[in-house]
């Protein structure tokens, strides 16, 4: 039922310069679900997220969020339309304090009251950040930074959350925490999540659906359980 989808991508083509990376990628994510985007290095996962959030201009295709086509809009406008992108390698602003990083995420909310409420929410949900709010974000560990960038993305009250390898480089205990957090965002806040992961096993463990990219093409799309059970697919593309 594509009409009911929070995020629909139709025949998306995108790349860099002469190089075409995404070749007619299509997907539909229902509201309140996690879709794992999987594939080997260089498959085009990051490019897909960057195209959705407007950092890469699509050459063709549509990107519908709640039925509105956002393709070819500017990144800042796409964010304002309710899509939050937590990029690969995080993007904490290390020169700003933790609180300033959070406030930055909430600036697109209109009104001081909404911003303050969002900040209070963030501190309640992540006490770790509340304790250190006056410290520079550069003093946080990798795992703490990952929590901060997700919390910062949530400050904008997005409907769609794009997460690029949130577990990259984290200790196993932090990976579990981050995955738990993503699951709770779906269950409690009803967020629609696109979760890019190298770690296919842990992504599929919390995802509702999965999408496997290879050389910029969708080679499999099914519910998470089906993908997990497909031994050939796992061996071929997912490496577990």
């Amino acid at each position: 039922m594509p009409d009911a989808a929070a995020l629909t991508i139709e025949d998306l083509v995108a790349g860099y310069g002469q190089v075409t990376v995404l070749q007619e990628v299509t997907l539909a994510a229902r509201p309140g679900t996690i879709t794992a985007v999987l594939g080997a290095n260089g498959a085009g996962k990051t490019t897909l997220l960057r195209t959705i959030s407007g950092l890469v201009k699509p050459r063709a295709g549509r990107i519908l969020v709640d039925g509105i086509d956002l393709a070819r809009r500017r990144p800042e406008d796409i964010t304002r339309a309710g899509v939050a992108h937590v990029p690969e390698g995080q993007g904490v602003v290390t020169e700003l304090t933790i609180e300033e990083n959070l406030r930055l995420g909430g600036l697109i909310r209109s009104g001081g009251a909404a911003r303050s409420a969002a900040l209070a929410d963030a501190y309640q949900r992540f006490p770790l950040l509340a304790e250190r709010k006056r410290r520079l974000a550069g003093t946080l560990s990798g795992g703490e930074r990952q929590i901060l960038v997700i919390a910062r993305a949530l400050m904008a009250a997005p409907r769609v959350l794009l997460l690029d390898e949130p577990s990259l480089g984290l200790a196993p205990r932090m990976v579990t925490q981050v995955m738990d957090l993503v699951r709770r965002l779906r269950d409690d806040a009803g967020l629609t999540v696109l979760l890019v992961e190298q770690n296919a096993r842990s992504a599929l463990a919390i995802a509702d659906h999965g999408l496997v990219l290879n050389l910029g093409k969708v080679v499999a799309a099914a519910d998470a359980a089906t993908l997990s059970a497909d031994v050939a697919l796992r061996r071929h593309y997912l490496g577990f």
Binding site: L55, R80, V93, L96, E100, R103, L104, L107, A156
Partner: peptide, 22 residues
Amino acid sequence: SVGLRLRATAFAPAVARLLGVR
């Protein structure tokens, strides 16, 4: 908040943009 936008843009324009800063 204007000052926050100015600083964020100075330190990390790409991040600021992704957070909706014009």
